[in-house]
Design a binder for these strands. Sequence first.
DNA 1: TGGCGGTACTG
DNA 2: CAGTAC
DNA 3: GCCA
Length: 459
Amino acid sequence: MIVPSGIGKKRLSLLQDKVVLHGGRLVSSFEEEGRLTHVIVDDMLSIDGFKKYVEDEARVAGVPVLKTQWLSRCLAENAIIPLGEHQMFAMPKICPTVLVGTSLGHPHEEQTKEISINKDGFACAHASGMKTDNVNQLITEELGKLAKIYKNSNDHWRALTYERAINQIKKLPKPISSYEEAKVLHGIGPSLADKIWEIVEQGKLRKAEKLSEGEKVRTLELFTSIWGVGATTAELWYGMGLRNLNDVKTKAHLTHQQQIGLKCFDDLLERMSRAEAGEIAAVIRKAVEELCPGTQTFACGSYRRGKSTCGDVDVLVTHPDGVSHEGLFQPLLKKLKLSGFLTDDLMIQEQSTAQQKYLGVCKLHKENAKYRRLDIIVMPYGELAPALMYFTGSAHFNRSMRLLANKMGMSLSEHGLRAGVVRQGREKVNDGHLLETPTEASIFQHLGLEYRPPEDRDH
DNA sequence: TGGCGGTACTG
DNA sequence: CAGTAC
DNA sequence: GCCA
């Protein structure tokens, strides 16, 4: 609901149009139907002025009353942004909030999460976790083809732009049907809007179709789908005249990683069920528990984000006493190898006691089990929250968090959040100081964001 | 026009 | 260092 | 390829 008082006529209708364009629903104060989730008012409106406008106070009880600036930013970012300082006030609540427990082994902060009544509203509220199906699937698929082609040919900044645009479009509740609707979105400029328009009109992208037919594009895609092969190597091999996996096996010089990539090629292209990812995580949890009781393991990545299938399994290992994680890595890997669970190493730093990351391949002990990618990181307990955040992703989510941190003069990594970071161009002049981040929620808080549970961290 | 996440490991 | 990956 |  937008309270028109104090908002210029022109601006009001502009805002209203945009809300609708983004899939929102405008609710008037007289309308009985429909849930009210947010109230937008002019910054200068007083509580009394507000009460006067709304006859029925029960109608707005507990609903946040926000400045127009909040709505503008939501529209610009195409997301429901934290209310924070945009919130002016809220009428006393009538509805209680509900506490819901989660069953996964998350740290205390996430054992309960608040579910308040005023959740969805306009659909730009889709914080990625709401399981709405993608109504612009055709568009995102076509753009995805180009994104991949650009990535495979080392044009990764362009690919990044495409991926961002795709993420943005996925959040939309309504199909895009015009150039203008696309162009309004943050991260979509003339070129992308053009392409989207073409997809809407023609049902496909000529450029993607044409490129996909090309031998080079198809070969680069094949090569880069081998683990350990990126755009540069693929291009090199193509230049050498290699065209298929057999050529690669017989004529290319392969790194250890690429040999494994080839050996497990078919299996690693597949995603596994969520259940299997859970089984794999359980194997590690059991081994860790036997080695050092009290050690905690967290299955992160897409598993923690609640996905129904997983491309790999990411397991974070730590110990609450802050010390026992040290020296745990080598015995753990040894034990997992001895049992035949770990089959190949992709990245392992054997001669350093400071190893923190292991990337490898595993296989469950059962009939027809497939090779699966497994990542393990061992972290000191003090870095648990930033590490969980990093390892849970998604990649795009991590990027945006770190970008925001930068803007605020901070720096976020899997080790911690620092404030007062001074940069001169790229290099840091001052490392700043570490902030206290006992929980993931505290990281959101430092950045002025509302907490987002893992399921809502897809974009 | 420069920047686009920040870091760990391999060869 | 470049390349690759998370 | 888009944005500040």
